[in-house]
Simulated assay, not measured.
Amino acid sequence: MKSESQTHQIRLGHPSRLRDEHGLRVTVLVLGLFIVFVLLLAHDEIARDMVLRGMIAPGQEELAELGIGAVLFVFWGALTVGIIRLLSRVYRGGKG
């Protein structure tokens, strides 16, 4: 039988990376990039669904696609700048 000290816990990600301040930030930024990427793939379906639910007029579907895409593009850029700034700080040896 295993004692309580030998039991394993299921955790998200590698524990030593998530305890590190930089590791957690990189994980969150990369997760954000993945979410934005998936939303960018589906933004036309999101706009179509908004028309079907009556949230926007049928003639506004293309404009909604462009708007959603533009907002997601800005989010993608902000996340990319965040990763670059973080990696630059780590490379220089600075703190968070």
Results as ranks from 00 to 15, higher is better:
Asp44Phe: 05
Val90Phe: 02
Met50Ala: 15
Leu87Ala: 07
Phe73Cys: 11
Ala42Val: 14
Ser88Val: 07
Leu39Val: 13
Phe75Arg: 06
Arg48Ala: 15
Leu87Phe: 05
Val71Arg: 12
Arg85Leu: 08
Phe37Ala: 15
Gly69Asp: 02
Gly82Leu: 00
Leu39Pro: 13
Leu86Lys: 00
Ser88Trp: 11
Arg89Ser: 06
Tyr91Trp: 12
Val81Met: 08
Val38Trp: 09
Ile84Trp: 09
His43Trp: 10
Leu39Gln: 15
Tyr91Ser: 12
Leu72Val: 12
Ala42Phe: 14
Glu62Val: 07
Leu87Gln: 02
Thr80Val: 12
Val38Ala: 15
Trp76Ile: 08
Val74Asp: 01
Ile46Glu: 04
Pro58Cys: 04
Phe37Thr: 14
Leu63Ile: 08
Ile84Leu: 11
Arg53Leu: 15
Leu39Phe: 15
Gly59Tyr: 07
Ala78Arg: 13
Leu66Asp: 08
Ile68Trp: 06
Phe73Lys: 10
Val74Cys: 10
Ile84Ala: 12
Arg53Pro: 01
Leu39Thr: 14
Leu40Thr: 05
Ala47Phe: 07
Val71Ile: 14
Ala70Arg: 12
Asp44Asn: 12
Val36Ile: 15
Leu40Ile: 06
Asp49Met: 13
Val81Asp: 01
Val74Ala: 11
Met55Asn: 02
Gly77Asn: 06
Leu87Gly: 04
Leu52Ile: 03
Glu61Trp: 02
Gly77Thr: 11
Met50Phe: 08
Val74Gly: 08
Asp44Gln: 14
Val38Arg: 14
Met55Ala: 03
Pro58Glu: 03
